[in-house]
Design a protein around this nucleic acid. Sequence first.
DNA 1: TTAATTCCAACTAAATTAGTTGGAATTAAA
DNA 2: TTTAATTCCAACTAATTTAGTTGGAATTAA
Lengths: 141, 141
Amino acid sequence: MKISTKGRYGLKAMIDIAVYATENQTSLKNIALRQDISEAYLEQLIASLKKAGLVKSTRGAKGGYVLALPPEEIKIGTVLRVLEGSLSPVDCQKNGCHENCDCCVSKTVWSRLEESLNDAADAITLQELAQDYIKVNNIQR
Amino acid sequence: MKISTKGRYGLKAMIDIAVYATENQTSLKNIALRQDISEAYLEQLIASLKKAGLVKSTRGAKGGYVLALPPEEIKIGTVLRVLEGSLSPVDCQKNGCHENCDCCVSKTVWSRLEESLNDAADAITLQELAQDYIKVNNIQR
DNA sequence: TTAATTCCAACTAAATTAGTTGGAATTAAA
DNA sequence: TTTAATTCCAACTAATTTAGTTGGAATTAA
């Protein structure tokens, strides 16, 4: 029941973009350096975030990434669902799913857990985390 | 962010024991058969449940398992924490943990997620799931 | 034209999860 | 007192997923 590096690194990257790409876009390279993440790996994660419409890119020299929305409109739940696939604690889309499959009697458990995770994550915005980051790391703007 | 087979199978086994080990204990073999789980694998999971004091065993012929507590006193959160290690979405016990590690600025996210998971899972008892199981599977007693 | 960048697909390595094997110890019942 | 059914234990292997790498094409500012 762990968030993988996709979720962890991807969220860090979103915070980084929120903090550093205010005037200008910021490059993958710089995000990776500041956040201490493998550049090539992070590239994959940012690709998902882009596909999901959370960040925008410009290509070529001086290119980079910016948030596609104001940070107060980006819920952490949205970010994590994009990166992790979903926050559902089980996959049960079998069409032959009957009453004794893993998910069925315990379905009430999994759906309540998922709902509570979604609610908790959707109650936090990127704005809040970016502000914490600025404070904690004493960033001048 | 998935519950593994440990959590899924282990919870099924707990429900099975709650349902079938009322008068007599029920054997690993029968639990595994009814729940369609590898017997040898389930053995490992039940060992954790036993170690955690959730089930009791008797050895030898006609031996088997029973719940160590009444099912209304067993929270699903307890069962899942035993089987999955914890419901925390991250491991961050590094002692050199500083402000830019994966967990720190996002710490508020992970701790809120963990809390909401624990609360949701602790609000459900084994009793409830066992009753659902009996109903859904039309079990005569 | 060059250097810096995003974008893309396929590959490899590492770690975790899932499951197996073999056998010792215990106990009820024939 | 033997046998069969069972729990208990430790180590091994297989499968899957996660994490990360590689190589290069396309784009663009300077």
